[in-house]
Design a binder for these strands. Structure first.
Lengths: 344, 344
DNA sequence: CTTAGCACTCAAACACCACGAGTGCTAAAT
DNA sequence: ATTTAGCACTCGTGGTGTTTGAGTGCTAAG
């Protein structure tokens, strides 16, 4: 693979991202940093097309990058600029003061991203999935009505109302509370599965009947916690870019939670995925740029941008990168057992 | 206003709703129940246009109803068919068995509506706004960390974590609990405003300092409760109908909660509103058909359909009507203090 | 190996035309 | 006085042909 060809490929992708039109040999040859003539470029472009990095919409048109072309560009060719101090300050300001809650912090970052990039911003917090039950409360609230409150180590709080067949007397309630505390404290929410439910109900039923609604309630709450929620901001922006199928965009926005996996299964650092590459990702010609933020060394969530395949990667990636790093340092800087902002 | 003209207007609206094309005099004259000739109809249609009920997209096209035309049609002209027993049974089945939770009941109704009408279905429950605080719990969960649990008469439960400057001893906690119980039980969530917050903080600060985060938390929770949430199902359907602006549709789906007022400020019974009539409603050429359901005599929520202006009102209105009535009777038939399904 | 030149291709833009649905108007019919 | 038939007119739609120009591949010269 020629060195000049790579340079030309990069130039084609750059130009296509800039203009949105198929780019021809002449346009490339006019670029300052390209020294060779249009004819040479034509030959190289033909070769690049042969190799699968470029394609022609039709015979007498310029070239457009293929998936492979983008991939190569992103992974190897592209040079990312540093963010200027001005830009960093601007982003910091958009994140809000030091006293914003963690949730708001991430949402502010998403708002900033969608404003700056004119794409949709997505977030998902992975924390609840791996967190551990730190407290369970059972509170009587009416005739045969009880509210369960479940608090996790990562500061998530969820509640649920349950109806029992009979009212519990003080003794029974205390017994149940004690049992729960003994058996559930420190248990991971992902462990609290159906088998565990059966086991607990079996163990309890020897002492007293039909506490199962309460146990079931607890299990359902931890089930809820396992499903982390994806948020989308500025999704309407995706409708203005016309290389995206509008139906798919709306389906994505409405059923966004089906895509949490996609945001989540990534290593640290910036990731770029194409809609059509991943089997599950619904929007056809889209591109997803995500990175994870951490809280006290542990992955706490993902933040990213969804746009058309020809988004300005050079511009967006540094922003996503900076924001996730900033969030990580803010979150880890404060107390690591900080639950102020989370409520279900 | 001629009687025949009204008949012709009704026929035009009917035809336009059926075909989606501007309707001409000839098409109307071919209808069975219209006895006059095309020429007469032309004259009347010209008159109706003069009066502002019809308009022409361009000179050599048929007529299309204006807002006024639709309004007159809906309010006066349209004849609604009765739902057949078959249809009623079908709807009942779609609502689910008697044992579904209230929330699910409404959601099933929305799902049924979106499936039947091929439009978006919207729901909002007005209950929390008017409900009354029935219990407040304060639970210590860590160093200087407390969780507040707020339960309302309508069965809504919300929680929030608060951080204090100091830890409370048992005595102080009991005092606060007692104070809250004395002062807040039976208070409407809509009363719990900023003034009340100030008053309570002032009253408490004489006894002990800096309980204000807890009080503030309670106020914020009731603030949350005042904002009821709007749900949309089948929003993607709105993209297929091309007389709706796609950008506006997505903005609506994303910022749906800004439109709760619109669903809520209505009298009982079926209401039809046009997007452009109401200042606040974002989707331009849309039409909103809503009705309220009740629970034990009190308005509990709204259920409706959003579609293009030329939706099949005759078909949809009976469905919405039946479903809200059915929901009302199911909800009112069961225990009126039923909170099983609600959690925040 | 690179470059200039040239013939070729093909989508997009434009102009043109015929069609037909629909109208308004007038004059005859009821 | 109202309704109807007839007719000339309007104007958007859709099909066809033509032009244009950007872009290509190929060949031959540098």
């Amino acid at each position: 693979m020629d060195d000049r060809k790579l340079k030309i490929l990069a130039a084609v992708v750059d130009e296509y991202i800039r203009t949105g039109e198929p780019v021809g040999s002449k346009a490339i040859s006019k670029l300052e940093h390209i020294k060779v003539s249009a004819a040479t470029i034509r030959n190289d472009m033909a070769a690049l097309e042969q190799m699968g990095y470029l394609e022609q919409p039709h015979t007498s048109a310029g070239r457009v990058p293929t998936f492979m072309g983008y991939r190569l560009y992103i992974d190897e060719l592209m040079t990312l600029p540093e963010l200027s101090d001005d830009e960093k300050q601007r982003l910091d300001a958009m994140l809000g003061g030091d006293d914003v809650t963690e949730e708001l912090l991430v949402q502010n970052a998403a708002a900033a991203l969608t404003e700056i990039t004119h794409c949709a911003a997505v977030t998902v917090n992975t924390a609840p999935k791996f967190s551990v039950i730190s407290k369970v409360e059972v509170i009587p609230t009416g005739k045969r009505l009880y509210v369960i409150l479940l608090i996790t180590s990562s500061g998530n709080i969820k509640n649920k109302a349950c109806r029992l067949e009979f009212d519990l007397n003080h003794e029974q309630l205390e017994f149940f509370r004690h049992y729960i505390e003994e058996n559930l404290n420190g248990v991971s929410v992902s462990e609290l599965s159906d088998e565990m439910f059966d086991k607990m109900v079996a163990a309890l039923s020897t002492y007293m009947v039909s506490l199962s609604p309460l146990v079931k309630g607890i299990c359902e709450l931890s089930e809820d916690l396992r499903h982390q929620e994806l948020t989308v901001r500025g999704g309407e922006k995706l409708l203005s870019c016309d290389d995206l199928d509008k139906m798919e965009v709306v389906r994505f926005i409405e059923h966004k939670n089906e895509f949490t996996d996609l945001l989540e299964d990534a290593f640290s650092g910036i990731q770029v995925k194409f809609g059509s590459e991943t089997g599950s990702f619904a929007i056809g010609n889209s591109s997803l740029i995500v990175s994870k933020y951490k809280k006290g060394g542990r992955e706490a969530g993902s933040l990213g941008v969804i746009g058309p395949m020809r988004v300005d990667y050079k511009k967006i990636i540094p922003y996503v990168d900076y924001l996730t790093q900033r969030i990580s340092s803010i979150m880890s800087g404060s107390d690591d057992y900080d639950t102020d902002e989370k409520n279900s």
